[in-house]
Amino acid sequence: MAATAVLALPLAACSGPLSTLDPAGPAASNIAILWWIMFWGAAALFLLVGVLYALAFYRPQMLSRFSVGQWIVGGGLIMPTIVLTALVTAAFVLGERLIPKPMEDQPPRVYAMAHQWNWQFGYDDAEGQTLQLHIPAGAPVDVVVTTSDVIHSFWVPRLAGKVDAIPGHENVLRIEADRPGTYRGVCAEFCGDGHTRMRFAVIAHAPEDYEAARAAAIARSGR
């Protein structure tokens, strides 16, 4: 029963400025749904194994009527094959929706350049750089991530998964914020002494305010 109590804990509070379970964009939302499906499935499977173990120990006569073949083929082969096929298929379908495939209406590109230990953000349609990433809310944006030194990782948990900044490579992450607001980000790949403080934010603006806000930010960081 302790197990059930422990399993119920994550339900307690999911919110937080960096919580993956407090999503604020379609990518993070979909992944959070995947998580909850997996969570309940895992809880059920864990319970199943626990009950079988307890019965095998305390009421073996209830279970000994199943032959060894039935145990192994049923529990070891058929059950996990069904569960895994379903899960893997779902994850593939979701993955296909999240990857930055070319779209008819290609999203704007922004550039995240990582350094030991800060981020600089640039834009296709504007000169200059900002220290926080500014994006329009309600529409996808492709973040092109790279680095000038060691490996870093761009992660804004409430918007989407992460992508690594690898020297010599450019990786693209598609993010979208449902509503205007400030979404905190961290460097997720260990990058040396300043790893801990390599934080940043993605600031999503209402589309009509976006250009002006970004221009102001560029002006500020230029000073």
């Binding site: 995947l34 997996m38 997720a188």
Partner: peptide, 12 residues
């Protein structure tokens, strides 16, 4: 092992 979930929690 599920790619999208891994993108979120990898290195966390």
């Amino acid at each position: 092992a599920m790619v999208p979930f891994n993108w979120q929690v990898h290195d966390s």
